[in-house]
Design a protein around this nucleic acid. Structure first.
Lengths: 160, 160
DNA sequence: ATAGCTGCAAAGCCTTTGCGGCAAG
DNA sequence: CTTGCCGCAAAGGCTTTGCAGCTAT
């Protein structure tokens, strides 16, 4: 599911192309802005952060359009939705196949991690419980080396 | 971090006790309602669902109090917060130590699952990336046997 | 020329918070 | 009696949606 050429977006290897001929999908400056920007980032960003960054780059896009665009990209399987601890949704380019992420709690930098053993175990344990239509999501959080060295202090970082 | 006897709640084995003598923590009917109710449930429920259920039981508790109570219980490590796919927070009694859950996408039933190998792998992979203060969260979603047999149809259940 | 997309602003939800009054200890 | 807790209602944030105009095709 969610594998690929829906919504006019296709993932071909490491390149994403917006298929203009897909049923009523248009190539617009705003969608290009969002997609091209996300391609330059290795952090998971919220819709508001994406909008702010694009504005700084002189390529303003309305918040509603950012939401609509990332929703489309997520549906197409081009990007992955990562929920922060507080429930805010963030987005990052990724296979959308392995939902395994290593996320920095401070700066939001993301690395995809993989472990086939985990993958197969989740399927197996779900099957043992009689579950069908199984999916899974593993998020490892921590503080990345960069943030550690900076000794950046964020509100409530320590004990709360 | 959130280890135990804070907020006047203690987890002793499989039993939870509200330590009334903990720094300014009072035993009230509402808190008892929430805790006792959660003990009878094996599903993860949102604050609103908890409030509705308690009202049905003739033990009404205001939504604000439910939120304040579950926040306290979560901080005390008595219950676990499980984010739904849409970002809504749900709560379930649990060790709050292993964040491994098998959740039914339809009815929200929850089973705790455990795999030490996964646990150690997450720590290892995080360390390899230089991450500190590591935590993780694994959620396996699917449709449980009960919901499968009922052939319950929820909006957008199939492909979406 | 057509149909989809954008921006704006309003509405929807979930969650938090201020406050007066009540109640546990 | 003191201090914390409850309920109510308002405020805060994130996200979605209706609508009119613009634009990619």
């Amino acid at each position: 599911m969610g594998g690929g050429d829906r919504d006019g977006v296709r993932a071909t290897g490491q390149r994403w192309v917006w298929d203009a001929r897909a049923a009523g999908s248009r190539q617009t400056e705003q969608r290009r802005s969002v997609l091209e920007f996300l391609a330059t980032v290795d952090r998971c960003l919220s819709a508001q952060e994406i909008r702010a960054a694009l504005e700084d780059q002189g390529r303003p896009v309305s918040l509603a359009t950012v939401y609509r665009t990332v929703a489309r990209l997520a549906r197409a399987g081009v990007l992955d939705v990562v929920l922060r601890d507080d429930g805010e949704a963030t987005y990052v380019l990724g296979s959308a196949r392995h939902h395994h992420h290593l996320v920095c709690r401070r700066c939001g930098s993301v690395a995809e991690i993989a472990n086939p053993a985990v993958e197969s175990w989740t399927v197996e344990v779900a099957r043992l419980h009689g579950f069908a239509d199984v999916d899974h999501r593993l998020t490892v959080t921590g503080v990345c080396p960069a943030c550690r060295s900076v000794h950046q202090r964020v509100e409530g970082a320590g004990t709360s």
